[in-house]
Design a protein around this nucleic acid. Sequence first.
DNA 1: GCCTCTGGATTTTTT
DNA 2: ATCCAGAGGC
Length: 712
Amino acid sequence: MDILEGLNPAQREAAETIEGPLLILAGPGSGKTRVITHRIAYLVKVVGVNPRRIMAVTFTNKAAREMRDRLQVLLAGSVEHLSLGTFHAICAGILRRDGQAMGLNPKYAIYDDEDQLNLIKRSLQDLGIDPKRYPPKTFQNAISSAKSQLITPEEYAQRSRSYFDEVVRRTYEQYQVLLAQSQALDFDDLLMKAYQLFANHPDVLSKYQSRYLHLLIDEFQDTNITQYALARQIAEKNRNICVVGDPDQSIYSWRNADLRNILNFEHDYPEAKVVYLEQNYRSTKTILEAAHEVVSVNKDRKENALWTDNEEGTPLRVVETFSESEEAQFVVSEVASLLDQGEAKPIDCAVMYRTNAQSRALEEAFVRYGMPYQVIGSVRFYSRREIKDVIAYLKLIYNPWDSVSLARIINVPPRGIGQKTIDELQQWTKGLGLPLYTGLQRLAEDKSCSPLSARSTQALIGFFTMIEELTRKSQEVNVVELLDAVLQSSDYKEYTLELPDGDDRWENILELRGIASEYKDLKLPEGLTLFLEGVSLFSDTDELDEKKDVATLITLHQAKGLEYPVVFIVGMEEGVLPHIRSFDDPAQMEEERRLCYVGMTRAKKRLYLVRALRRSLMGGTNANPASRFLKNIPSHLVQSTGLFGEEPKAAPAPKPDGPDLSAGDHVEHPKFGKGVVVSCTPTRDDQEVVVVFDGVGIKKLLLSLAQLKRVE
DNA sequence: GCCTCTGGATTTTTT
DNA sequence: ATCCAGAGGC
């Protein structure tokens, strides 16, 4: 039996090269996943490597789960011992097991963005920084970016160049103090602390280095500096590190992914072998060529020789509609007609868009038509308020130091503990140098030491007693029973049902309960540990159901790694795709182009590129010109459809004085000089024009007032 | 302390 | 258009 049977020569080489560093450059649809799974199977079955000595890192949990499923088939068991997961999940495990060497509580909490932002706000408060002048989000980004490059607060201080840098440094420092007090790590910490653990504790590092004979990293183009450093640490001893990626599909620089990782790889591992997977098995020649034309405009890029044996296929369809609702209507009616002709089933169709907000119009049309669909991740399950509240209870029971969870639920449902009480409590515990929870404990032991009114004190003690009781219970019941106890003693059910959309919210909680029941056979606290870890690291693509016969609505980012016979990319407009925020940065513009490329290469048979002449945004309406990416697709690959739908009957707005402008036009203004029109938005009886003036910047002008002249 | 109202800001993508 | 924070009334 040959485990590598059916692989093409390049794929085979990639799977068989197991000694030393290996870089696999894998274009879209080139059978990358197949290569990875077969490589692991080859290592285990042919070379005889024990699965526990292999670590495979994926980009999402879903990818990890799929790979495990596939390996289960190839290997028939013994897959459990394989270390397989995202960097975050793998690091979470390492820190849970060995973090004590660096003084980390194994029951550390994991903070997501929202928790993180809450704690940053508190840091700003502690430092007396005005969140109006300095938006907390800015700090969140700065801190995350620092951690993704292994920059500690001390190092940040050394690099600090401006006053603003200094403010960031102080916030970063204080934020870390609060995290430590809460015995919590944020997402970036999971990676950075694991790195530091290895860097400062050679014994721990050596344990992992000896264990992992083979390290494999997928989606390498989307790793950040810290992840790369971690990989280097783990692979240092055996140097069997295999990375798989495609620079053209790098779309996560905003999450601090760094393309230098791929470029540095051959530098850091000069003995590395490089394998190119260039045969595409997914798309038609037409789709592949069009996608290539779009991405090859990028300057910062290495040319590749992606090709396919597949048929020419049908031409791309480029479709214009009047409005976003007609855009949605077109999509649904086209799906319906493909269904009628027996060309496709709903499950074969995906609609992709740049921003989640765009899913709404689509969803309406699908509902109206009665076309079955699923939306991926528009409102993330785990960021729903009710879910976060219930989880906060569990997190607090698990780790009473977790101040963010404590603050979240101390008065939810309302139990007479207002902001003032919380502030005073905080003041008091701070003075005593105690964590909040210990402060509550002290109150409960001796009411008379309370600095607060009897009423507030009683409310606090009531809350504390409830949590204590639940904590006691958590020793003897499973996760579901604990969750039920939380709902019971907090009256959360009654509270939720009172809220707007109460029934839906309650449904969500029941769904969470269902997820918890998957952990009910595990002993506590381990069951709770794993449940909370799973919940914290869960991602949205995880909820994608690939078996239900429904169409999929999904962002371009989330679509990475997926494929569909029929793909619609909507919002092919300047300002949407490419997104307006990328206009002033060529590197970001290149990323938008790659994003478009990723979307196009998801399609196997049919690809539709759709745009709306008018799109409502933030209340107003925008008229966006066609996406520049459309212009890069050779016309012989395209069948253009004229306008879809009827022109809206509404009387056209009276034309204001001034030239007839559209985005891209060059204009001149008496005061601001020359510039380029970014967008035109009709208002009630005028037009708002956004112009980028040379050397002046972006200005919003009213067409009737601004004396704009059109120039060539 | 809690609820409601208003004004202001805000929209990219997510482990 | 929608969400959020802060203010003010009960």
